[in-house]
Design a protein around this nucleic acid. Structure first.
Length: 249
DNA sequence: AATAAAGCCAACCGCGGTTCG
DNA sequence: TCGAACCGCGGTTGGCTTTAT
């Protein structure tokens, strides 16, 4: 059985890919002028083009068709695209049918470029991250400041306690000198007071309302999407209602 | 001036629906 | 009726150009 051009190309995996040359465009255009649109798989057989039918159709529809409009999308066309997309969603071919001379691919690309709010680019992400780090540093400084104040407070309390302890010891000594031989119970009392003092000192390091308020500073969620959402709001200053896209992207 | 990043668009891929032998 | 071929669609990718750093 003789092998035709297409079968041969398929078996050899020899379909050409990538950008079309002027010669290929001419061959395809001549084919369509003679045979009309359709039967794309026979293009390779009849013209010798090493392109798949799919590729030929796409090239014709998106680039070679004579009724295609060249140039940028106009403001009016943009309005139509926005309105139709709001009604139809991503049905690009349906939208394209309402815009003579424009292809679905063109409209799709235009939409994605101009209206789709994509995940931030690497540069944008770096900027967002920088802003975020500055915010974190500021929070950290606030935290350290609060901690410093807390420690000062604790040191003052400790010094106060030590002074009290010294005063008590001095009083004890005075009593001892007066009585010459202190009873054992009093020793126990001194020890107990000492322990209580140390307990009070220790209590100063326990979380107090001020400290827990500092520790309750909002920390970033691990969830990446939530993080990016908040970062977007940070940059845009938006309330989350803007964007207008139906959430499809 | 060099280079990295973003913008843009043509082309490819995979999938589902339709047609035809 | 069924399976292969064909077609069309939407999503994705690759590469060239422009812009920003």
């Amino acid at each position: 059985m003789a092998m035709d051009a297409m079968s041969s190309a398929v078996l050899q995996g020899a379909w050409r890919k990538g950008p079309w040359t002027a010669l290929e465009d001419r061959l395809l255009t001549e084919y369509v002028q003679q045979q009309g649109e359709g039967s794309w798989n026979s293009v390779a057989k009849l013209t010798g083009l090493r392109r798949s039918g799919k590729s030929c159709r796409l090239r014709w529809v998106n680039y070679l068709r004579p009724d295609l409009k060249r140039g940028k999308i106009t403001a009016d066309e943009e309005t139509v695209i926005l309105q139709l997309h709001a009604m139809l969603g991503n049905r690009w071919s349906a939208i394209a049918r309402c815009l003579p001379g424009r292809t679905d691919n063109e409209i799709k690309n235009y939409w994605r470029t101009h209206f789709k709010k994509a995940r931030p680019s690497r540069r944008a992400r770096a900027q967002l991250l920088h802003q975020y780090q500055l915010q974190q540093q500021q929070q950290h400084r606030q935290y350290l400041h609060a901690l410093h104040l807390l420690q000062q407070q604790q040191q003052e309390m400790q010094m106060q306690l030590q002074e009290n302890q010294q005063q008590q010891q001095q009083q004890q000594q005075v009593m001892m000198m007066a009585q010459q031989s202190p009873p054992e119970e009093d020793q126990a009392v001194i020890t107990t007071v000492g322990n209580m003092n140390s307990m009070e000192t220790a209590e100063c390091y326990c979380p107090c309302p001020a400290a827990s308020a500092v520790l309750d500073l909002p920390l970033p969620a691990d969830d990446e999407d939530a993080l990016w959402d908040s970062l977007w709001r940070l940059v845009d200053g938006e309330d989350g209602s803007s964007g207008g896209d139906s959430g499809e992207y």
